[in-house]
Design a protein around this nucleic acid. Sequence first.
DNA 1: GGCCAGGCCCCAG
DNA 2: CTGGGGCATGGC
Length: 253
Amino acid sequence: MENSVINLQTTLFCGQSFAWLQHGETFSAVLKGRLVQLRQDTCIDQCKEDAFLYHYFDMDFDYASANRHLITLDHPMSEAIAYAKGLHILNQDPWEVLIGFILSQNNSIKRITMLYEKLSINFGTEVGKGRFSFPTPDQLAGVGESELRSLGVGFRSPYIVDAIEKSYLLDDIKSLPFDDALSVLMTIKGVGPKVGSCILLYGFHRMEAFPMDTWMKKAMARWYPTQDSALFSPYAALAQQYLFHYARTVGCE
DNA sequence: GGCCAGGCCCCAG
DNA sequence: CTGGGGCATGGC
């Protein structure tokens, strides 16, 4: 019904992806080696014509049903859902999520997006209009720590180098149980429980994931002090996204 | 010019 | 296993 209509603004800028730019009413990103440009009013039609976009925007997931389940929970979940109406969890490329969220630690979303773009411009493939694809592991192979530091990656540079060397680990994640998958991801330097959970959520659509960042710690302490992610099962990941977006943009009062 | 940012590493206890 | 300092960089 109402909440099954995707909202691009909320979906693309609620902190799950660093690949999108907005100019006027147009949202754009380079996905699968091509420049994708969408507007809210034409998004649904474009997704129906394009199997990749349809899956990327998670159009098959029953958000109406999940929301009906979550909305029965205590304050402020119903407000958080209403506030983020039309939020979908994207099905992103695991490799791009891995690097994006290694960059995210002790960093601001604005600067993460900037670094993501810098990596694309320096090591990706130009697809026209001054836009570049995010570099593949092969394109980043051999890139050194000092080169990354010169781009502003800072103390995360050795983490990125390690992730490049261990990118093959992503190949087997899909078939693993959640905890095993998390353990494998955490063998990559710079990947802890939070970043690992983000990879499993945004790269593998694992609904059990419940990334606990600074905002989520505040939100849980404020609103659900005696609870954990089990409260939101089987939609913990979606509940997390609603709470994160609500706490970060509205506040924890 | 400090403060802080979707944490994690590393090292004490 | 738990806790806390340190960390590169730039937006504010």
